[in-house]
């Protein structure tokens, strides 16, 4: 853990972190882009999960919907991560000791792993999955991704 705290300390003194510290509008601008990215990420995940729960577009094949929305989900995630990293650099030491941040990173990792394993399997072409498993996958997917949102919002409050 010692080396991890050194990494956080180092990142807070990089040119990127200094650029953000030296600007009044850069952090808000990056945070706004972060919210736009997470909106696309959560919106597309929500649409597929609602389909798995059989609440929307019953005639739209799950695998086709998931395939069509996947590029948007990954784009939203990429924007969120690429804007998240500079925000983290600029207040790395604060985040290091922040329980909400630590929880967010754990849940984010779980959400991504779940997304490329169970979620991918349930939404893949020709998947033979009982509807109940589809619904459970949707509930877990929503809990994980919205968990990332909740803990992310909490970083600034604790």
């Amino acid at each position: 853990m010692q080396s991890l705290s050194h990494l956080f300390e180092w990142s807070q003194n990089t040119w990127l972190a200094n650029a953000i510290h030296g600007s009044t509008w850069l952090f808000p601008a990056i945070e706004t882009a972060h919210i736009l990215g997470l909106t696309v990420l959560l919106g597309t995940v929500l649409a597929i999960d609602l389909r798995l729960l059989n609440l929307v577009m019953p005639n739209y094949r799950v695998s086709l919907l998931a395939k069509n929305l996947a590029p948007w989900t990954w784009t939203g995630l990429a924007v969120s991560v690429l804007t998240g990293v500079p925000m983290l650099c600029s207040e790395a030491l604060k985040c290091y000791g922040n329980d909400a941040f630590r929880a967010k990173m754990v849940i984010l990792l779980m959400a991504i792993v779940f997304h490329v394993t169970a979620f991918r399997r349930v939404t893949s072409e020709g998947a033979k999955i009982a509807p109940a498993w589809g619904r459970l996958t949707a509930v877990l997917s929503l809990a994980l991704w919205y968990g990332v949102g909740v803990t992310g919002r909490a970083i600034g409050f604790i």
Partner: peptide
């Protein structure tokens, strides 16, 4: 803070789904 969190997450649901319709 809880209401602010709800506002943000409801926004991602509302605007996220509308964005799919827009696309």
């Amino acid at each position: 803070p809880i209401v602010e969190g709800i506002h943000l997450l409801a926004l991602s649901a509302s605007v996220g789904l509308i964005a799919i319709c827009d696309l």
